[in-house]
Design a protein around this nucleic acid. Structure first.
Lengths: 202, 202
DNA sequence: GTCTATATCCAGATAGAC
DNA sequence: GTCTATCTGGATATAGAC
């Protein structure tokens, strides 16, 4: 019996994952309001009824995805901060990874897009909005702290407001994600060195 | 009679403008699908019925706005190209204006956002998609040409692909527009000099 | 030109058979 | 656990009175 229960649980989890993955694809491409529950079900290969067996509402699916997106993003940010590297190297590494991720890692690009969609649209569930409020600042904070440390050790150009620098760091990444969304798979990320020039000479 | 006809025409135009202005605000904030015709009517202070007297559909309103947004954007781009200034000054001027526009010119920021929304969402009317396909490239082209000219006259750093440079130019602007949308009116644009460093030293 | 009332459709969510 | 059938609300769009 335990064996069966475990198998069931695994199947359940897999199905749930499947639904979330397809919903992510759809929401990232069109936004919450323009995607119907029926479409998610069809993309997943299940019925609408089953969808509502796994989730209480369309909003709940969306909110789960927002949570997941921020969890990954913030985990990556904390990982970056914990790395044993000088600040300047951290920034270069992070930006390189982000651009490569946008280009090659579909799921990552979708998460960035979902966050962009959510931030862009005033029309999202209150719970998702709360997650956004609480978690969206963290990546800015991480990058800002690293940049400030770099200014102090002299490896990053001083004189700029670190908040401004963190702002352009992230808005550039989001802008590129947007561009990728609009222009599809033939997206080619720019050379990261161009962007890094904002932070130091040469 | 001619007098009356003219007055009527003017009132008609004003009402139409009013509808478009409110719809722009709503669409830019939430996207096409999350805005209802009733909300547009209410925001305009008219009835739903009258809305459909002026426009055939919600999609038509959206498409009109997309046309308008691109018309202004491309007009500005052509104006920039026609200016009698060295390439490097054109870029500096353009970026300064864009950032100031995002910060202070609500209508401009809304247009940028609408374009971002439209590019982001796969779920827009076919006609709007066509406008996007045909017109969205122009601003990239303009900036790319100016940057290339600057590379040739030596005022802009050479060695970078001008397409990459034009890409980061515009994606940065769009990213900032996104940020403004998410963080509302307390948005403060970064110092443009930070961004300009991508294009030349010091 | 402008409004109210309404037809029609479609999406979110549920009920209940298997 | 999974499906089909259905309820119900709300949105687009229209009709028709004033």
């Amino acid at each position: 019996m335990t064996r069966n229960a475990e198998t069931n649980q695994r199947m359940r989890d897999e199905r749930r994952e499947r639904i979330l993955a397809e919903a992510l694809r759809l929401f990232a491409a069109r936004g919450l309001a323009a995607v119907t529950a029926g479409e998610i079900a069809a993309a997943t290969g299940t019925s609408k009824g089953l969808l509502y067996h796994y989730f209480r509402s369309k909003d709940e699916i969306f909110t789960s995805l927002i949570r997941e997106a921020f969890a990954r993003m913030n985990e990556a940010a904390r990982g970056l901060e914990a790395l044993d590297l000088p600040p300047r190297e951290k920034i270069a590494l992070a930006l390189g990874r982000l651009l490569r991720g946008l280009e090659q890692d579909e799921r990552f690009a979708l998460h960035v897009l979902l966050i962009a969609q959510a931030g862009l649209s005033q029309a999202i569930p209150e719970e998702a909005r709360a997650v956004l409020r609480e978690e969206s600042f963290a990546p800015y904070g991480v990058v800002e702290r690293i940049l400030r440390a770099g200014q102090e050790d002299g490896s990053i150009r001083s004189g700029d407001d670190p908040r401004d620098l963190a702002l352009v760091f992230w808005t550039t990444v989001k802008g590129l994600a947007l561009h990728r969304a609009a222009h599809g798979s033939d997206f080619r990320a720019p050379d990261p060195r161009i962007l890094l020039r904002m932070f130091w000479n040469d």
